[in-house]
Design a binder for these strands. Structure first.
Lengths: 158, 158
DNA sequence: CTTTTTGCAAAGCGTTTGCATTGAA
DNA sequence: TTCAATGCAAACGCTTTGCAAAAAG
């Protein structure tokens, strides 16, 4: 995934499903198609809204299970936020993340220096590594200027 | 945090609290003390169990709120798991993470090449960056050998 | 003395589960 | 024809909230 942009088309998606012995259903195709259009870390709810416009009778539950499945086979990334529903990273391009510890905002950024990091030998030997990313934590511009970081995190403003 | 090992002692902890105008309570000290003893990404429940042995009357709720607060001021890291309760990274040493997309296991690893990555200028300028880490995603040894990754993730076996 | 923190209980909300029905292969 | 996927509803469990009492500065 993620390291190449080829999977953007439905062909690549179908390929990926077959490899994992998942049946090609209209629901799965629609979910995949709508999902990759939504950048900015959509929630299940947001994906459900988008897919509903295509398949009016699809259930929230199917979207939930299917998106979870897509994450499990490495088609997309789970971005677990500090609070609220989990969000998904549907951007297949390689990129990196900054998390604000105070408000929970997640900011995508590009940085070439991070793109070609080599993998540790022992990790490569023992596991199958499908993607890599650098994650920074800190305080975002807004939160840095506030006096006390002790207020609970609000909704994500992504 | 994380980039130096000085905060291990209680003095550093008290310093950190004062900087954020948090009062020094016996509960907070006990939680901090027990928490850093627990490696392997403890849950709130696990931290609560450990602290309860010290302060028998502490409430689960206080542990929950306090640990969340510690994460918000950068004393520890939230580890985003695929499911189940959130876990915390209480290891102050710089290290990196591998996530298994199938079973949710999180593996810590060290790799010197990743330890001195420079930060992107625009990120440094706009935000306060408190820690950095490389995150790898893939299939762990066990899951790679299974045929179908379509079964739902079980409990984290960390 | 003032303000934060604690402890408890209840509510909230995202996620998971079970099962009958439907549909892909 | 078979076995996985879907849709629905209910259950579950983690997290959050509100508030009175207690404690820190």
């Amino acid at each position: 995934m993620q390291q190449n942009g080829i999977n953007n088309c439905l062909d690549g998606f179908i390929e990926h499903c077959k490899k994992h012995r998942l049946k090609i259903t209209p629901q799965r195709c629609a979910i995949y198609r709508e999902m990759i259009k939504l950048r900015h870390h959509p929630t299940i709810e947001e994906i459900f809204q988008a897919v509903s416009r295509e398949l009016t009778n699809i259930s929230y539950d199917t979207v939930n299970r299917t998106v979870g499945m897509f994450a499990r086979i490495g088609l997309i990334d789970v971005v677990k936020a500090q609070s609220g529903p989990r969000r998904f990273d549907t951007d297949p391009r390689l990129h990196h993340h900054f998390y604000c510890l105070n408000c929970g905002t997640i900011i995508d950024f590009d940085f070439e220096d991070y793109d070609n990091l080599s993998l540790p030998e022992d990790m490569k030997k023992n596991h199958s590594i499908l993607s890599k990313r650098v994650v920074l934590n800190g305080l975002c511009k807004n939160c840095r200027e506030k006096k006390s970081p002790s207020s609970p995190p609000g909704d994500l403003n992504i």
